[in-house]
Amino acid sequence: MSSPAQAANGEPVINVRDAVIRFGPVVAVDGVSLHVRRGEVFGLLGPNGSGKTTLIRGLCGLVELTQGTVRVLGYDVQRDAERIRANIGYMSQKFSLYEDLTSQENLDFYTGIYGLTVQQGRDRQAQLIEQTGLAPYLDRRAGRLSGGWKQRLALACALLHEPQLVFLDEPTAGIDPVARRDLWDLLFRLAALGITLFVTTHYMDEAERCARVGYIYLGKLLAQGTPAELKHLPGVNIPGTRWLEIFCTDSAELLERLRARPGVRQATIFGQSVHALVDADRSNAALGLEGLEVRQGEPTLEDVFVTLSRAQQKE
């Protein structure tokens, strides 16, 4: 099946303009515009309740747009939601397969729902079982799978119909680091096949791996771009300031100390280090950092998001 998006006219796979989604008085998505290109892994970040899930639902036509336009795979979501759905995969934030059915039965159900022929279904299932390594768990009830395997099963079900675009809402929430890495490896293999991925996450390391990242805060998309672009945003790199990465043994104590100093605009703990945004005219000595390992840093993505959120709060 071919869609207008494949017609090499350069139209982004996802194109959102001024989308607003309102639930009564709550504005869950507030004037979001973004675009995602074919084959891209797009990461959407934002604190809890910032509207990530709602935006995804809006992109799939699962909730109605209050304003704005959304085009997905070249179709208008308000008019052609069914066409879009036939060509996208979706993995919701909460595990949403049938827990009382086995993995195989869940796969069979979605094979039927997506209208695959018996032969197509068999081939596609074999391929996905191979890719996800689900084979040993096929006869297990989905409810009894561990978190990582649940996510792989959900992904397999979402990929049965060979969608060109897959939405994954916090696919790695609550699974262990190894499973997390495995899942991302799988996602990159999909991206290499030309599948566009739209992923939400709370993990910065995952965000760093995305081709492009968007940051949404209280319904507003505050920034989008490659991780490098975001780190060089003028709003984050204010003239006359510099980012420091300070290593020390007692980072909590250092944080207290730094926050009390004049000239320190912002300080955050990152494990064994403290990231700080300081006025450029203050020397390390003036900040009381003699004897500590200090690196001139560029902001991390987390610095970027914290700074953007603070700036937004002040408005």
Partner: peptide
């Protein structure tokens, strides 16, 4: 309640 309907809505059913 189980959230499976949301998944189902995303299919052509």
């Amino acid at each position: 309640e189980n959230g499976t309907l949301e998944q189902l809505f995303m299919t052509p059913v």
